[in-house]
């Protein structure tokens, strides 16, 4: 699996400068007007979505059929995509966090206090989870419909998890659960665990879809 992760990192490394430039432009545009919170999410989700680009590279070079002649299984291939997604989400979150901290430092004209740092870290955790959830959905859709259609379905990658969250929220309201600040705080703290659970389900479904495919 290491070879698959390495291949994606090498492939995407070529686009890294462009992505850094886009993130820098967005930082200038967003942080002074909308604050750091939105920017960390944008950075994490944008970097997470690079997973779709890796599929496009694979398609272009007919990599998948070559990978299957290596000592790897189809499950390894799917698992590697989730590992790469986690790496992209982490890089995006850390970049978002760093650029937000710099932006806030400039805006505040001085070092950040502990509360601001804590808030940023908390937001980063939630941003990582959101980008991992959306990316996991994107992997499944790309495996099912191909990289070209998968790009078009990026919006669906966002809408499906959002709809599931909304459905769960409505169910909780129906059951009489009151959404207190404490409960929301707890849910956000547990968001990485929720993201892992979500992506485990996506991984299982993706494996079944991919197992049926001919290369």
């Amino acid at each position: 699996m290491k070879s698959l992760v390495l291949k994606d990192l090498y492939n995407i490394g070529h686009n890294a400068k462009t992505m850094l430039f886009i993130l820098a432009v967005l930082a200038v545009a967003f942080i002074p007007t909308s604050g750091a919170s939105g920017y960390i999410f944008i950075s994490a989700v944008l970097c997470g979505m690079m997973i779709v680009t890796t599929f496009a590279f694979d398609d272009q070079s007919k990599w998948t059929r070559y990978a299957m002649i290596m000592p790897l299984s189809k499950k390894d291939l799917v698992a590697a995509k989730f590992v790469v997604l986690a790496i992209f989400c982490t890089i995006g979150t850390l970049l978002g966090l760093a650029l937000s901290a710099v932006g806030m430092f400039i805006a505040e004209k001085g070092p950040l206090d502990f509360a601001a740092i804590g808030e940023l870290l908390f937001l980063a955790l939630a941003a990582w989870a959101v980008s991992f959830i959306i990316g996991g959905m994107a992997i499944l859709l790309v495996l099912r419909y191909g990289a070209e259609k998968g790009r078009v379905l990026l919006l669906v990658s966002f809408l499906i998890p959002a709809s599931v969250c909304f459905g769960v929220y409505q169910l909780l309201v129906l059951l009489g659960v009151v959404m207190t600040d404490r409960l929301i705080f707890g849910l956000l703290c547990g968001s990485p665990a929720i993201a892992f659970l979500w992506c485990y389900v996506m991984y299982q479904i993706s494996c079944r879809i991919f197992a049926r495919q001919e290369l």
Binding site: S3, K7, Y10, H14, Q60, S61, R65, M70, P71
Partner: peptide, 26 residues
């Protein structure tokens, strides 16, 4: 196995192809 075209993305180099393959094959 060798197919009729190269299966590595065009921005890779032979050195990187070696590193990827080394990680795949014992």
């Amino acid at each position: 196995v060798v197919f009729d075209g190269i299966n590595f993305y065009e921005t890779l180099t032979p050195a990187k192809v070696g590193k990827i393959s080394r990680a795949a094959y014992k």
